[in-house]
Computed example of a mutant assay.
Amino acid sequence: MKLKRTYRFAIKTSLFITFFITLLLSVFLFVFYTINWGLILAFALVSYAFSFVVIQLRVERFIYRRVKKIYDDLTLLESASLTRGSITTDMGTLTKEIDKFARDKKLEIETLKVREKYRKEFLGNISHELKTPLFTVQGYILTLLDGAIDDKNIRKKYLERANKGVERLSYIVKDLDMITKLEIGDLSLNLEVFDIVELISNVFDMFEMRAHKKNITLTFDTDYIKPVLVKADKERIQQVLANLIVNSIKYGKEKGTTEVSIENLIKNKAIVRITDNGEGLEKKHVPRLFERFFRVDKTGNRKVGGSGLGLSIVKHIIEAHNEKIYVESEFGVGSEFSFTLEKAK
């Protein structure tokens, strides 16, 4: 790194020294000899030049070594902004760069704190999600080993319950694997043209019985006589619709409604809306709705089932299509999830 010289300090200091020495010489000549203005002027110029050179070289070298130490220390902290420029002995420039460095590091530390908080929360959530079915399976197996295996009725019932716990573990691991692949771009999409209306109807048929148990009506906002063709991964979009419709049933009110509408957003985009009149969400929960394992109910209640990863998977699938997903919710009124898709030409 090269030295960037600043002369302001040397110029001013040399001027003061020259003025003082010249004044002292003038007084000396006035008292003891005759004043020779030409001699005094030449002396002043020589004194100024000598003072400037000495101060500039010596003081600058003195400061440079100490400032360079500061730059070296900051460079060890990998400050790219400081290593790009040349070293300067100007304190104003150095102060600005250090202030900028401090602000950048403060922002970086705050970001790391947020990530650390999220990491701890995520590890706590996944630990809880895995622990619950594991302990359930272990409890049933230990009960069978303690002698309950001899009773055919108990044996069958406990094995079925243990199997449900294993299935839940499989769902969590499978969903986590899918999210990981989506995040690193390792899950390829099979893009094809299909009728989104037909796909939604198929999803309605899949969950008709579940909706019937809560007297929830699955319906379109209008009769779609003509097909609405979109270009996307049909299997993944079906997974998105299934997750959103299942959630609307889980958290829907008795005798409620889940309504799906398809609208033209712009020339080459369509937007699919899934609206319900269920529980709704408080505004403070909406920003975190797509986080892994995030649940509004902090008591750990899992009566509604699921892996806790459904909405996170939905978000990643939609973003893998380079599309957007939106959510609007009002507590006690209901929720609306919507996402965009590319229309087929």
Rank of each mutant, 00 (worst) to 15 (best):
I262C: 14
I262R: 07
E263R: 15
E263H: 12
E263S: 14
E263M: 12
E263L: 13
E263V: 09
N264Q: 08
N264L: 13
N264A: 11
N264W: 09
N264M: 09
L265V: 04
I266K: 15
K267L: 15
K267G: 10
N268A: 09
N268L: 06
N268K: 15
N268G: 08
N268F: 12
K269H: 11
K269I: 14
K269V: 13
A270M: 12
A270D: 05
I271P: 01
I271F: 06
I271G: 01
I271Q: 08
I271D: 01
V272M: 09
V272A: 02
V272W: 00
R273S: 07
R273C: 06
R273M: 10
I274G: 02
I274M: 02
I274P: 01
I274K: 00
I274R: 00
I274S: 00
T275A: 08
T275V: 07
D276G: 01
N277P: 01
N277L: 09
G278D: 02
G278F: 02
E279H: 04
E279N: 03
G280V: 13
G280P: 01
G280A: 10
G280F: 03
G280T: 07
L281G: 03
L281E: 00
L281D: 00
L281C: 05
L281A: 00
L281T: 00
L281H: 03
E282P: 08
E282T: 04
E282F: 12
E282H: 11
E282I: 10
E282Y: 14
E282L: 15
K283C: 05
K284A: 13
K284I: 15
K284D: 08
H285D: 10
H285E: 03
H285M: 07
V286S: 02
V286N: 04
P287I: 13
P287T: 11
P287K: 12
R288E: 06
R288A: 11
R288K: 14
R288S: 13
R288N: 12
R288Y: 13
L289N: 03
L289V: 08
F290Q: 04
E291R: 13
E291V: 05
R292A: 13
R292V: 08
R292S: 11
R292I: 10
R292T: 03
R292H: 07
R292P: 04
F293W: 05
F293A: 01
F293L: 04
F293H: 09
F293N: 02
F294A: 07
F294W: 12
F294I: 05
F294N: 11
F294Q: 07
R295A: 15
V296F: 13
V296N: 08
D297A: 08
D297G: 05
K298M: 04
K298S: 08
K298T: 10
K298Y: 06
K298I: 05
T299D: 01
T299K: 07
T299W: 04
G300W: 02
G300M: 04
G300Q: 04
G300S: 08
G300Y: 07
